[in-house]
């Protein structure tokens, strides 16, 4: 398991120049270390107990989930829950739909976002900065304030209950442009200038120089977008009514509504809906954290 790296300092002011803090030879104090670990353990318990309970409940019988006293560890492990759920609800369809939507939106957002960011960061033309300001200003407006006009538009275009509505609404966010532009600004202009003198066109510079150099930022953006889309509830909830288009979030929510006493099966579904995100996160959490720390905002 990879460790969460020290987050880069972006929000805070840079530390003043001076003597770098050398390793102070302080004697190890076992009591302090023990106390520190005890506090870490308390934190971990607070955070992880709900997850532990979710996994444990997913391996029980329905009538063993809410018992007095609490059974933290199942009496018998019912792995069969993870087999039965595929027949109880169309879980495979839901997972596939979620994967398709997340992938489509991520690809579009990364492509158009990084492309536009190059225009904003490295090509000079009148009106550019005013336009960028318009992008930034929209990030400050809560989406909840304009969801109704968006809905009216989609309704008039007869795109409700299709993936088009969600893809079109989420693939061109200002967030991706902002994140990529921040990164491109950190790449020296001299590099582009040299390439220009060598006869590379702007598109060539973008493709041959900027894209390869910005792989970490592209990875950050791709991950944030993928996870956000996978977890999104309101978008699919507003626009998708047909069962065969539903994402995992909608499917799970509707299952809870219909069979609210099947506690174990609900938990099995919850585990399955979280698992893909856990995998993505563990593989790329470094990019994930960096993206959050650079932008300081999300969705």
């Amino acid at each position: 398991m990879t460790a969460l790296p020290d987050a880069p300092a972006v929000v805070a002011p840079p530390s003043p120049p001076g003597r770098p803090a050398g390793p102070r030879s302080r004697r190890p104090r076992p009591l302090r270390t023990a106390l520190a670990y005890a506090s870490l353990l308390a934190v971990a318990l607070l955070v992880l107990v709900p997850f532990g309970w979710m996994v444990s409940s997913s391996l029980k019988r329905d009538n063993q989930v809410l018992t007095v006293p609490i059974e933290w560890i199942p009496r018998e492990f019912r792995w069969s829950n993870f087999v039965e759920i595929w027949d109880r609800i169309p879980m495979l369809t839901y997972l596939g739909n979620s994967a398709f939507l997340s992938a489509a939106i991520t690809v579009l957002q990364v492509l158009t976002g990084s492309f536009a960011a190059y225009g904003f960061a490295k090509v000079r033309f009148p009106g550019r900065d005013a336009l960028f300001l318009a992008y930034i200003a929209t990030i400050a407006v809560p989406w909840q304030a304009y969801m109704v006009p968006q809905y009216i538009m989609m309704q008039r275009a007869e795109l409700t209950d299709t993936y088009w509505s969600i893809i079109l609404l989420q693939a061109f966010g200002a967030f991706g442009v902002f994140l990529m532009r921040q990164y491109y600004l950190s790449i020296p202009d001299d590099l582009c200038e040299a390439a220009r003198i060598d006869g590379l066109s702007e598109y060539g510079i973008y493709r041959r120089i900027m894209l390869p150099l910005s792989k970490p930022a592209l990875a950050s953006l791709a991950m944030l977008t993928f996870v956000n889309t996978w977890n999104d509830y309101m978008g699919p909830f507003i626009y998708l009514t047909s069962n065969d288009l539903w994402t995992v979030q909608l499917g799970l929510r509707s299952f809870v509504g219909q069979y609210d006493a099947e506690y174990a099966m609900i938990m099995t579904g919850a585990v399955l809906s979280v698992l893909p995100i856990l995998v993505v996160f563990l593989f790329g959490q470094r990019y994930f954290i960096r993206g959050i720390a650079t932008s300081g905002l999300k969705g």
Binding site: A3, P50, M54, N231, M267, A270, I277, F281, I289
Partner: peptide, 29 residues
């Protein structure tokens, strides 16, 4: 401290867990 990275990861994970899963689990808790 040794292993502090694991704890940071754990503390961050609820944030990227889907809302539906979070709501379902806490409603039962």
């Amino acid at each position: 401290l040794r292993g502090v990275g694991f704890f940071r990861t754990a503390a961050f994970f609820p944030y990227i867990t889907s809302l539906v899963a979070v709501a379902v689990v806490w409603n039962m808790l």
